[in-house]
């Protein structure tokens, strides 16, 4: 099934809205992309051209291949606090649910809420049959998110393209979709 970026789907959860990035999210995006604490386990800081390209890519992949990264916004204010979504770039071992949140948004359960919605979306709307998350072996916060979603550590230290990560396997569609259906 295809989407056009002009209508990247919008998903609302209890406290969050997953939607396409807009230009007015760029300052927030740059701020957390430049934060070493946020990016330490996900490829390092991105500045300038590199941040701009990632921002544009988050929007463009939806129209090119029908899925990609959502902007994660606070539902009440629409303020961008990070990104999250189904991704499957060339060289990936399997389709992945990725998530990154700004430092100020950590510790509130937002990542679990956002990634859970993205996982449901991937199973229900994209028809994915499996999903993993690639997580650095020292990224305990992200491991906690995966665990809270029901995922389990499957394989340690897997080489993926130019980095190494652990594979966390998410619960299958039957398990994820049987409870708390998200409306898309």
């Amino acid at each position: 099934m295809g989407f056009h970026s002009a209508n990247i789907p919008v998903i609302e959860t209890e406290r969050l809205r997953l939607r396409g990035f807009r230009m007015d999210d760029y300052a927030a995006f740059c701020a957390y992309k430049a934060d070493p604490e946020v990016t330490h386990f996900v490829g390092g800081t991105e500045l300038g051209m590199s941040a701009w390209r990632s921002f544009c890519a988050a929007v463009g992949s939806w129209s090119m291949i029908g899925h990609g990264v959502f902007c994660v916004a606070i539902r009440e204010t629409d303020e961008c606090i990070g990104h999250c979504g189904p991704i499957n770039p060339p060289g990936w071992p399997e389709p992945e649910i990725g998530y990154t949140l700004a430092r100020g948004a950590h510790g509130k359960g937002y990542a679990t809420e956002a990634a859970g919605a993205a996982l449901r979306f991937a199973y229900q709307k994209l028809g994915w049959r499996t999903a993993i998350s690639l997580i650095d072996e020292n990224n305990t916060a992200s491991q906690g998110v995966a665990r809270r979603l029901g995922a389990s550590l499957e394989k340690k230290q897997v080489e993926v393209c130019d980095f190494t990560a652990d594979i966390w396997r998410h619960l299958p569609p039957e398990e994820i979709l049987k409870s708390n259906p998200t409306k898309f």
């Binding site: 230009m23 390209r53 990632s54 921002f55 890519a57 463009g60 090119m64 060339p90």
Partner: peptide, 14 residues
């Protein structure tokens, strides 16, 4: 490169 190509497309939309 996949990211770059996505960015080439997304640039128009943004």
């Amino acid at each position: 490169v996949y990211g770059l190509m996505s960015a080439f497309v997304g640039h128009w939309e943004l």
